[in-house]
């Protein structure tokens, strides 16, 4: 009997002193293996009497169970210890840079354009498109700028032949859309695009630039509607709380015509460098569609009215992001492009 206790104590002490899973495995083999000490005890049973056998067997089993349990427990402990050691070994320098994941950037002019597009799509406008190589008829004639109007002078326009030119304003698209509508309302659209004028390129002038115009024609469209619409747009583009101000102006295709100022988003109208102390920045031209323009395009100017507005996207981007030279938009220096790499 004592033999069993002896083996058990010996085993337990061996388990306790095992330092690694390998050592523990040796212990397991030594005591629980087929040729192990505990198995050897079982073989001793043969020499026992019939009565003694069950008692002995039971004791050996208890011993086996105790040793097994101790091994399991020790195993778990050793594994935990090994894992802990591994974790320490796996330690990273968390201050090293993460793997580079640079995404490309949208051109700032298109960022502004898309912002305007999304705003107006949300209000039920469509986005019109039209050719950059345009007919004189759409660029000027239908826009109430007849032949001999000073605005048509050669020095302002890139003519290709007497009837063809590079469009000087996105108004040409408005005219195409008005003509296409054949006198049917409602019309609600914006028309962004490249335009061209004979300007020498410098910090503030570019022979190629980008405009976005808007046009609404329907019954009972008012100048107050224009103001509300532009206020909406100003708030979207320059942040909530913008106010707008109309000043009388002149465009051949609108009457009344207005210049639109937005309260300066940089100083909140208090006066700063950007607004040159005035508290306002001039940003848009707008007006009620000239009745003659409506008539030329087949609309009854007694029945329908409309408003139109236009904005230069370079100017908006330059104001918004503090860009000092318009040529940056077309040079495409990667450092410039990478400036516009985030949510706005």
């Amino acid at each position: 009997m004592d033999r069993i206790t002896e083996v058990q104590n010996e085993a337990l002490s061996a388990i306790e002193s095992a330092q690694s899973p390998e050592e523990l495995q040796q212990v397991r083999i030594k005591y629980l293996g087929k040729k192990g000490s505990i198995q050897a005890l079982m073989s001793e049973m043969k020499s026992l009497s019939k009565e003694e056998k069950p008692v002995f067997g039971q004791k050996v089993n208890l011993c086996k169970q105790a040793v097994s349990e101790a091994i399991e427990k020790a195993q778990a402990q050793l594994e935990a210890k090994a894992l802990e050691a591994q974790l320490i070994k796996d330690k990273l320098d968390i201050t090293l840079n993460g793997t580079k994941s640079e995404k490309g950037t949208m051109h700032p002019l298109h960022m502004i354009q898309q912002e305007i597009e999304d705003l107006f799509i949300g209000m039920g406008y469509k986005i019109a498109e039209g050719p950059e190589v345009e007919e004189d008829y759409y660029n000027f004639e239908l826009a109430n700028i007849p032949k001999d109007h000073p605005a048509r002078e050669m020095q302002d326009t890139f003519y290709i032949d007497p009837n063809t030119l590079l469009r000087t304003h996105t108004t040409a698209m408005q005219m195409r859309e008005l003509e296409k509508a054949k006198g049917q309302t409602p019309i609600k659209l914006i028309c962004p695009g490249k335009v061209y004028r004979r300007d020498d390129d410098d910090a503030t002038h570019s022979h190629q630039f980008t405009q976005c115009e808007g046009l609404v024609v329907g019954e009972h469209i008012t100048l107050a509607d224009l103001k509300g619409t532009l206020e909406f747009m100003a708030n979207r583009m320059f942040g909530e709380g913008r106010q707008i101000r109309f000043r009388p102006s002149y465009f051949p295709f609108t009457e009344p015509s207005v210049e639109v100022d937005v309260s300066c988003p940089f100083c909140n109208g208090k006066g700063c460098n950007v607004c040159k102390g005035s508290g306002w920045i001039e940003i848009l031209g707008a007006g009620m569609v000239h009745p003659h323009v409506l008539e030329m395009n087949g609309f009854d100017s007694e029945k329908c009215t409309g408003f139109a507005f236009g904005v230069g996207l370079e100017r908006v981007a330059m104001l918004k992001y503090g860009i000092d030279d318009i040529r940056n938009f077309y040079i495409n220096d990667e450092r410039f492009l990478k400036t516009f790499d985030r949510f706005d």
């Binding site: 329907g218 107050a224 509300g228």
Partner: peptide
């Protein structure tokens, strides 16, 4: 001048 939005057929 007030600020209003066009009141027209939905598009």
């Amino acid at each position: 001048l007030k600020s209003t939005l066009p009141f027209m057929e939905a598009t």
